[in-house]
């Protein structure tokens, strides 16, 4: 199971992305982060801390659960409903520059669902996208604005992002058996 990113590398990658976000949204105090549950929300929290270190100011940060917006929700003939988790966006997104955060960008379907969900909360000025890993194989016309690492993969592989808060350690690994899941 090759490790593509260790804790040190991940830390530096997130610091770099935080600087890129500020560079592109310079002087904009309408910035807000929204992470997609579960690991995107963890990454958003980390980025918020880094932005706070740089700016000395708090960037509003929320967590979005996209389960109820999935395009395959009622299409699986059998099988359990995916677990719904709590969405927590404790601020108005109206006229904000929203930066959406997820761990892995793959088909783009999760991001499509997230865009639909966000619009139900208001009308942001813009939405940008941060992903820690872009593994290709897009099925929808979606592109990230900030990428931690571009990773060419085959569809038989799975990419797993692990975070200290949810998995006990920070790392990105790639697996050859596609049935393990855990990506995007």
């Amino acid at each position: 199971m090759p490790v593509l990113m260790d804790a040190d590398r991940m830390g530096r990658t997130l610091t770099r992305i935080a600087h890129e976000v500020l560079e592109r949204n310079r002087g904009d105090d309408e910035l807000a982060l929204v992470g997609i549950r579960t690991r995107g929300a963890v990454i958003a929290r980390r980025l918020a801390d880094k932005l706070h270190d740089i700016l000395g100011a708090e960037v509003p940060t929320g967590a979005l659960d996209i389960t109820l917006y999935r395009d395959d929700l009622m299409r699986q003939p059998v099988g359990p409903q995916p677990l719904v988790r709590r969405t927590e966006i404790p601020f108005s997104i109206d006229d904000k520059r929203i930066v959406l955060v997820d761990d892995v960008l793959y088909t783009g379907r999760t991001i499509r669902a997230a865009l639909d969900a966000l619009i139900d909360f208001g009308r942001p000025k813009s939405i940008q996208l941060i992903v820690l890993v872009d593994r290709g194989h897009r099925e929808l016309p979606i592109k990230a604005d900030y990428v931690g690492k571009n990773l060419p993969t085959s569809t038989a592989q799975s990419v797993q992002v692990r975070m200290e808060e949810t998995d006990g350690r920070d790392e990105v690994v790639i697996q050859d058996d596609g049935d393990v899941g855990g990506d995007e």
């Binding site: 579960t38 389960t67 999935r70 395009d71 395959d72 299409r75 359990p80 409903q81 995916p82 677990l83 988790r85 793959y106 088909t107 783009g108 379907r109 999760t110 669902a113 099925e139 569809t155 799975s158 949810t166 998995d167 006990g168 393990v180 899941g181 855990g182 990506d183 995007e184």
Partner: peptide
């Protein structure tokens, strides 16, 4: 579909990571 299927698996993993077996379906 592959991506969203994978998320369902990920959700189950999350729960496993958080503690003892929790039901995800009735």
């Amino acid at each position: 579909m592959a991506s969203t299927d994978a998320r369902a698996t990920a959700s189950v993993d999350d729960v496993a990571a958080q503690g003892p077996a929790q039901r995800t379906t009735l």
